[in-house]
Amino acid sequence: MADVSTETGDPGENSLAAAADRVLDNLAELEPELVGAAIFGPEGERIAVKADSERWPSVAAELLAALEAGSGDEDLDSAHVARADGEVFVVKESGLSLVAVTGRFVLASLTSYDMRMALRDLGRGKTTGRAENGGD
């Protein structure tokens, strides 16, 4: 799983991107079946990506848009899409969205929980400048 760089010129954004990067590393350690993952901001902007393909973030953004459209008037909290050869999880928390692809037959509730905790941690770090499992 490669790291697709998201660095910008803004130091605040860079520190958030670095913390998000570490959060994704921790998530990958917790989830051995994790294939790729990305964190997006409130406006759908890419914050951190761990995936082999350059196209991964844009397709993940398409999926997020499709899920928002599919939610209608309701506020999307999370989603789980199962396909024959893998599963996709989406969790929204603290204004951030985490999209993750895993192998088939992972424990869905555990994966969603880990993703939510990762985002919560990053969200806390966003306000305090420090993420417990992702920040320094």
Binding site: L63, A66, L67, A69, G70, L76, A79, V81, R83, V88
Partner: peptide, 27 residues
């Protein structure tokens, strides 16, 4: 395709609907 909402509700989008197909295709 299973979606959970902030309200606590949960929905399995019926396969074959345009919304579910678009989500499944992107996934």
């Amino acid at each position: 395709v299973r979606i959970r909402f902030r309200s606590g509700a949960e929905a399995d989008l019926p396969v074959g609907t345009p919304e579910a197909d678009r989500i499944a295709e992107a996934a």
